[in-house]
Computed example of a mutant assay.
Amino acid sequence: MSRTVLTREQVLEAADDLVRQHGPDALTMRGLAARLGTAVTSIYWHVGNRESLLDALVERTVEEMGAIQPTGRTPATRIVSVARRLRGELHARPHLIAMVHERGLTERVLLPAQRALVREAHTAGLRGARAAEAVRAVQFQVVGFVLVERARELAQDETPGRERPRKSASARKDPALARALARPADPERLFTASMRALVKSLLAQGST
């Protein structure tokens, strides 16, 4: 019988599965070779060293994310739509955040969204440094929010059933506030509200 020839895409697919399941630290060339039933030298032949492999995985994931198309009638609503889409893409790929952090490739991952944000900033009348500030503010808000969400998820996994914090004095003075804070946060609603407020403030600069 003829032996199946290993391809670069098969190597990347196996590496991606390994990182999704166990994180970037679990990705070793020897472990990947064992997973594929091949020699370590064959892995190096197809993808180079581990650093090159991680870079290739980031590029592959960015390609999967594809171009981000804004929706909505106004620049503000379209920018919020880009932010929501980017958050969704990152949230669906927690392994990507870890890889990007390890390789210092955050800017590369954000590039598709950045292009859409630049277009909308220009449409809103922002130029130069103001446009750049608006684009970066939106990107930082998205990434920061996703990182907080991820940290909360990991904390809940490690300490399930953790006791809720006690009510503060200010909360006791405002029963409605206390009740609201006692309920679990709605990340989608919170993200959208905060992003709308941020974008409104940023775009107001275009009229000054």
Rank of each mutant, 00 (worst) to 15 (best):
S52G: 14
R196G: 01
A169T: 02
R84D: 07
L126Q: 07
V143I: 08
V142D: 01
A132N: 05
M99H: 04
A67K: 13
Y44M: 13
P175D: 07
A169H: 09
Y44T: 15
F145S: 05
G23P: 02
Q10R: 10
M195D: 00
P165G: 14
M65T: 10
P175E: 05
L6E: 02
A134D: 01
H91W: 09
P24Q: 10
E133T: 13
T38I: 08
A134F: 04
T4A: 10
S170I: 14
S170N: 07
E51M: 02
V40D: 15
A15D: 02
Q139E: 13
V40M: 08
T208F: 12
A131Y: 00
L203F: 10
L154I: 08
L190T: 14
G48K: 09
A134C: 13
K200I: 12
L12V: 08
R164P: 07
D186Q: 14
A26Q: 00
T4R: 15
D174P: 01
L53K: 08
V19R: 02
P94S: 01
R87G: 00
Q139N: 06
A116R: 04
A171L: 11
G104H: 01
T192G: 08
G104E: 02
E188G: 08
T77H: 04
R150E: 09
S170L: 15
S201L: 15
R136H: 13
A67N: 14
G144S: 04
R8L: 03
F140A: 11
E149Q: 10
P160A: 07
E120M: 06
A26C: 03
T77R: 06
A121R: 01
Q141A: 15
R130E: 11
R60N: 14
T38N: 09
L6W: 03
L177A: 13
M29W: 01
L126I: 06
A129Q: 07
R103E: 05
P75D: 02
M65K: 04
L27E: 04
R50S: 10
R3Q: 15
D17L: 13
A56Q: 15
D17W: 02
Y44W: 14
R30M: 09
V40G: 09
V199E: 05
G206F: 04
Q205G: 14
A116N: 03
G88D: 02
A137R: 12
M99N: 07
A129H: 11
D17A: 13
A132H: 05
R30P: 00
R50L: 15
S52Y: 02
S207A: 15
R78P: 04
T208C: 14
V138G: 02
S170Q: 14
L126M: 05
R136P: 00
R172F: 10
A151N: 03
S168W: 11
A132M: 11
A134R: 03
